[in-house]
Design a protein around this nucleic acid. Sequence first.
DNA 1: CTAGGACCTGACGCTGACGTGAGGGTCAAG
DNA 2: CTTGACCCTCACGTCAGCGTCAGGTCCTAG
Lengths: 138, 138
Amino acid sequence: MRIGEVAERAGVSVRALRYYEEQGLLSSERTTGGQRRYPDSAVERVRFIQNLYAAGLGSKAVLRILPCVENGVLTDEMHERLLAERARVQAQLDELTATRDKLDDVIRAGQANRPGAAGRGRRRGSAAQACADGFQPV
Amino acid sequence: MRIGEVAERAGVSVRALRYYEEQGLLSSERTTGGQRRYPDSAVERVRFIQNLYAAGLGSKAVLRILPCVENGVLTDEMHERLLAERARVQAQLDELTATRDKLDDVIRAGQANRPGAAGRGRRRGSAAQACADGFQPV
DNA sequence: CTAGGACCTGACGCTGACGTGAGGGTCAAG
DNA sequence: CTTGACCCTCACGTCAGCGTCAGGTCCTAG
């Protein structure tokens, strides 16, 4: 598989793939002419890399996690790392969840205080209340 | 409250606070000498800003969300924006959850194939299996 | 065999969210 | 009034994760 196809299937740029290789996250065979060839599995691998990036891991962290693959065996060290990164991801999840709920509060409370919409009997001031709960007026 | 105390309490740097002000996310009174003074509420506000940053919003997006506060009223436009950003955050949550679960798979499957630990009766090869499910050997 | 689309290697550019250092004021305690 | 911790404003530096451009090569369909 050529680099362009991998890029398209995985939804990333060609440049990104070359960057991943540069970082040691992705390898490739080369044709005699020097062009990269990938197995089909590369697509999934790239997607997983993207997931890890999206989870806030830097390329160094990703690099330290991926090797579990090269041998199919988890050393104690790898296990520790995986647990550590899992914890990190979970912490992010918790924060994100809290943020989402906060946004929900603001939205829900704001419903009652819309200028255009008649606030169907809900008590006024609840928007200001919700806003005060989390951030104050400038 | 002086800038240093806000920074410490909110767990960010002084530089960050000045940056937030520069971006219009945070305001302050000034003493006659030109030093910034903040109300106690600034700490919470900063924490919320941090949450939004952590949720992947850029300072422009944050800037467009925060104003709901200044008047305590949601215009239709603000409402739209809030909903849009909420959706974004939710999408991130979903991705993150999937990534966490994937990590869990790798960890759980790897348990059976640790070099040091006796794999209490679990069938071998499951680690390689889990690894294969998501990313392939280099 | 040839055209032109895909690919190659540098190498510099970009953006966001600050870090950092210079050079110099401010403020509250003693 | 002095002192030392704290604060001020530039303004350049940094780092990741690519984007982008230049100049040249490969490869495969026809």
